[in-house]
């Protein structure tokens, strides 16, 4: 809808984005800090932990990834706590292009058909490749069984003001995804620097057809800072209120503890609202987080603090 509304000439895109309300950095940080004081205890905490587990995009994005590591990862994705079948499976696994088929096949083999495989794409993490390569990257991943594509935007183009180029790339990748894959657009907010840019990039991605907007690659610091997540949640909320299109949000990078994760859920609840408290619309890109969630879950069940060797390392 928005894609139709904005006639996507460079100048109209630019003026649309520049006319978005600005973000006061101090105010956004203050709001995030206030929400961070929410105290989530007992039953709420238990629910929040399970909800968070179900939202984890369990991720490994290392040059040293091996088929064995991927198989281990997807096993954990399906049964985060092998001794406790009550624990929900994670939202998705997120891997590099060449690991997609391995992840997909293993998930299918062990009964994890319902867990999607997300592939980082478009020359992740830098995005420095030709459009042809980016398209090929995406097509390969989908062909290998990826049902979610986590693409990066061209931050260089964005920062230089060439919103049209960024827009067109997203549109092109979205066209390839079609009905076969959900598109998550990684803004790499650490490189966009300002919250005004985060808001602009969020709208640009949503207008171009993103199903999700994702904060970061995880390769750049700062990543999913609280004010960044807050601004992106405001963007999807307002986009939904205006156009009725519900776009998801995925913070990724730096969310390592249960406290961090629950904080994310509080941000969601008090910013975008309950509609987003759903793995279809909120994901947390993480790797180490899952174990902390499991340990906290054990603490709630047993009443004592869990040990690190009671959860699996991968």
């Amino acid at each position: 809808m928005m894609r139709i509304n904005i006639d996507s000439t460079p100048s109209s895109l630019k003026s649309f984005l520049n006319e978005l309300p600005k973000v006061d950095q101090v105010g956004a940080a203050a709001r995030a800090a206030m929400l961070a004081t929410r105290s989530i205890k007992n039953d709420s905490k238990k629910k929040a932990i399970d909800l968070a587990i179900s939202m984890v995009d369990l991720t490994t994005l290392e040059g040293s990834d091996t088929p064995g590591k991927i198989k281990s990862l997807v096993t954990k994705a399906l049964h985060p706590d092998p001794s406790n079948p009550d624990v929900p499976h994670v939202g998705a696994v997120c891997v590099y292009n060449d690991m997609v088929s391995i992840a997909r096949a293993e998930l299918d083999r062990i009964g994890g058909q319902s867990i999607p495989v997300a592939a980082v794409s478009t020359a992740f993490p830098s995005g420095r490749a030709s459009m042809a390569v980016k398209i090929q990257d995406t097509q390969d991943a989908i062909a290998a069984g990826a049902s979610e594509i986590d693409m990066v935007i061209d931050r260089g183009a964005f920062l230089s003001g060439d919103y049209k180029l960024v827009f067109d790339e997203i549109v092109a990748i979205k066209d390839i995804c079609g009905q076969k894959a959900h598109l998550k657009v990684i803004l790499e907010t650490g490189e966009l620097v300002t919250l005004d840019n985060v808001r602009k990039a969020s709208y640009l991605a949503m207008a171009a057809g993103a199903d999700f907007i994702r904060t970061s690659t995880g390769k750049i610091s700062p990543a999913a800072t609280p004010p960044v997540v807050l601004v992106m949640l405001e963007a999807v909320r307002d986009f939904y209120n205006t156009l009725g299109i519900q776009v998801g949000v995925k913070p990724a990078g730096g969310i390592r503890t249960t406290k961090d994760a629950i904080r994310q859920l509080v941000f969601v609840k008090e910013t975008a609202g309950d509609l987003w408290l759903d793995p279809r619309f909120f994901r947390i890109g993480a790797s180490a987080l899952l174990n902390d969630l499991l340990m906290q879950r054990m603490k709630l069940q047993t009443g004592y603090y869990a040990g690190r060797n009671y959860v699996t390392i991968d």
Partner: peptide, 9 residues
Amino acid sequence: MVFEYAPSI
């Protein structure tokens, strides 16, 4: 899944 805040007194 409903996520409400339990009393935290």
